[in-house]
Computed example of a mutant assay.
Amino acid sequence: MKTPQPFSCTFTPHIPELLNQLNCSLVLSTYQAGKLVFISPKDNERLIQLPRTFPKPMGIGIHPVDQNKIAVACQDEVIVFKNSSTLAAHYPKAPQQYDALYLPRVSYKTNFLDIHDLEFGKDGIYAVNTLFSCLMKLSEDFSFEPIWQPQFISQLVSEDRCHLNGMLMKDGLPKYVTTFNQGDQKQSWRKNVTKGGCLIDVDNQTIITNQLSMPHSPKWINNKIYCLESAKGRLVEIDQESGTITEIVRLDAFVRGMDQIGDYLLIGMSKLRENSSSFHQLIPHIKNNRAGVAFIHLPTKSYQGEITYQSSVDEIYDVKVMHNCLRPNILHPNHPESKMAVDTPEQSYWQRPTNAV
């Protein structure tokens, strides 16, 4: 059998046309491959991808007002990028090819926090500090500024006690979080990953439900709470008063990473790690082991198709929609071209290459 090319994927035929109609691209983080991958419609029949190398990329945040600003949690830092459409149009390697170019603007040196979800809030950038079992704000003065922890966590230590991972923002502040259990010992959640997952109200420490299976990616959509149950491979709705869990759609894959555009949800799917004892517990529940992005039509609660990877991408953490953007690019701070761009409120410039004498 011929070895597939890097980042080879198949897709449901109407996906490119749908992305064109929605006027958007996708960006996904795959820490396993060390990449951010942009997926765009080349036309109504084809997709085009742009993988960019980042060290262990995890959570991706897009500013809710200024969609031109994004943040990416990496292995030991969070990098904030800003789009310059002017610089994109004149990108030296491919002029007039990209409609957005995200350039590094700020870097927060966090070191080994194992940051999962992160989002822009009304007064800063909030993130889930999974290693220390707390919510945090990014700080210019410290590795992190803790702002909240579950009441069952007795102290902030680097032990990933309950696998706090997901964060739902509401009105610019964290409102709900997801954890794998209510443990207060080092990696206590690993003992039984298929039971005991929680959705917790940040404001009053109320546990809305403790009946989830590896919950991830909680979202507030149309005044309802949606969440992914990774261990069961499904999207669920959670009643914020009773905690009742209602299945919306089952994908039979390890689901993690979710975003919305219009009536559609885009859901990341990851392959199970064959050598992981925790993932081994999921084998009876995951029937279709694959990596990619599924498209769900929320009003009809129906599966609409997917992008499925044949190579390079095995595990996805986050999926975000790039609104009003059909061909984005991003430059890591170490990328040579990122050091050649100058952007001001009035003008933008690319440095002209010079010949060494």
Rank of each mutant, 00 (worst) to 15 (best):
A100P: 05
S133M: 03
L131P: 02
H90C: 08
V80Q: 06
T130G: 04
A89S: 15
L118D: 01
S133K: 00
A127Y: 01
D117K: 03
F112P: 04
L113W: 00
Q75P: 03
V128Y: 08
V72N: 03
T86Q: 13
T130A: 05
D117M: 08
G124E: 06
Y91M: 10
Q96K: 15
L135W: 11
T110M: 01
N83W: 02
D117N: 09
F142C: 05
T110F: 03
A88T: 11
G124A: 05
E140R: 13
K93Q: 14
T110I: 04
L131V: 12
V106L: 09
S143L: 10
C134Q: 10
H116S: 07
E140L: 11
E77N: 14
L113P: 00
A71Y: 08
F81R: 00
L138P: 03
S143G: 10
E140K: 13
A127V: 04
N111Y: 12
C134F: 06
L118W: 03
F142V: 09
I115S: 00
K122R: 15
L101A: 10
D123K: 14
A88R: 03
K137F: 08
P104I: 05
V80N: 06
S143Q: 15
A94C: 11
L138N: 02
K82L: 01
H116L: 08
A71H: 05
A73I: 10
V80W: 03
A71N: 10
G121E: 03
N111W: 01
L138A: 03
D123Q: 13
G124M: 11
A94W: 01
P92D: 11
H90G: 05
D99Q: 09
A94I: 07
L113I: 06
A88M: 05
H116Q: 13
P92M: 06
S139T: 09
G124H: 12
H90V: 02
F120P: 00
L138T: 06
Y98G: 05
F81P: 00
C134R: 04
A100N: 14
Y102D: 04
L87Q: 06
G124D: 07
